[in-house]
Amino acid sequence: MLLFNPDSDPALAAQLNRLLNAQAGALEQRRFPDGESYLRVHSDCQDQDCVILCNLFHPDDRILRLLFLADTLRDCGARSVGLITPYLAYMRQDKRFKPGECVSSRPFARLLSGAFDYLVTVDPHLHRYHSLDELYDLRSRVVQAAPLIAQWIQERIPSPLLIGPDSESEQWVSHVAELAGAPFQVLQKERRGDYDVSISLPDLDEAAGRTPVLVDDIISSGHTMLETLRHLQTAGLPRAVAIGVHGIFAGDAYNRLTEVADVVTTACIPHLSNQIDIAAPLADAVRELLQAHHADPS
């Protein structure tokens, strides 16, 4: 197997190379003076299983080179071309809220489905979609972060109380709480704008003597978590731990969060908050999909 890492986390790529017994694909990239991309594959791809690690947390900067690379690998005779993207972009716009809006999750899915044989990701933002199969016309595997987060909590937090900041987080919080053997609460959120959010108070009787642990799938602006953390502080609870599957941290979100909580994320998006490893389950998913692809290439 050849593993190409055009734009992503070198540490995760090194782990995957070792776990998959893969060779690092040799790739040359640069930009022409007019801003267009140059790409050349130096590895011999003929009859090779090729997989690309490409974190799509800044998709508009990466997607063209990703598609160019996938097409080049096929043109050079690759046996299969797969994609590992721990953060799958363009999942949040899953409905047309206003006339004429682009439901961007759909055309983005068509782009990737046409370029790859299979896809591996971690906890995509499935809100109105029940599974990736509703969007993507290719084999896919979703690695669940809940067992990894639960193990991290069990090993490091003696008496946790898991808290979800809103109803959308309940699926993550309840699953993690069950696996960690810990109680949980889900608060109510009212969003009046991108930066105007109010959160209900937790049940303080249940919280007594416990460390609050906020769990959410995506930390972007951080406003929902910040509002929740302020409530916890006002209620006199101990310093909280805020855990995100995907730490996007727009603007100064990370600095503001670390003022009031210990912030931890999975290694889905490279960041200094990464403490929860994802390489082993990603490698397992790749092996499963490759086996299925070779059994039925259609």
Rank of each mutant, 00 (worst) to 15 (best):
L67T: 12
V81R: 12
S198T: 14
P165D: 04
A182T: 06
D123G: 05
F32A: 10
L161M: 09
D117M: 05
L66W: 05
R191K: 10
F97N: 12
N5E: 03
V173M: 11
G236S: 08
R128S: 14
R106K: 12
G100A: 00
S298K: 10
D49C: 14
V143C: 05
R96I: 01
A267R: 12
V173R: 08
C45T: 10
D60R: 12
D94V: 03
G100D: 00
D61L: 09
G77R: 03
A150N: 06
D117L: 02
A182V: 02
Q15F: 02
P107F: 01
Q185K: 08
L179D: 15
E155G: 07
R141Q: 12
A235L: 06
A292G: 09
P147E: 06
L83A: 04
A279D: 04
S298A: 12
Y118K: 04
D262E: 15
V143K: 09
L2Q: 15
T211V: 08
Q93I: 03
G236Q: 09
L204W: 08
K95I: 00
K95A: 10
E101Q: 14
E134G: 04
E206G: 14
L19F: 07
Y136T: 10
R141K: 14
F108K: 07
A26Q: 15
F184H: 15
D34H: 06
V241G: 09
A295F: 00
I153R: 07
V264E: 09
L138Y: 02
Q185Y: 01
A26T: 09
V103R: 13
S174Q: 14
L237A: 05
D7R: 14
G244T: 06
T224Q: 05
L161H: 08
L69W: 07
D166T: 04
V142M: 04
Y87I: 01
R65T: 14
V142T: 14
L66F: 07
L237Q: 13
L53T: 06
A295V: 06
H293I: 05
N274W: 02
L64T: 13
R92W: 01
V241S: 11
H231S: 15
D44S: 05
C45I: 01
A182R: 04
D94K: 05
L161A: 06
D9Y: 01
F68T: 14
Q29L: 06
I218T: 07
R96W: 01
S131R: 11
L126Y: 03
R128T: 03
D9R: 02
L20M: 07
M1V: 03
D277Y: 02
E168Y: 00
L282G: 07
S43R: 08
M1D: 09
G247F: 02
R65V: 09
E288Q: 14
R62T: 02
V186E: 11
R96P: 08
I149M: 07
E168T: 08
L67C: 12
M225A: 15
Q233K: 12
F249S: 10
L132E: 08
R191S: 11
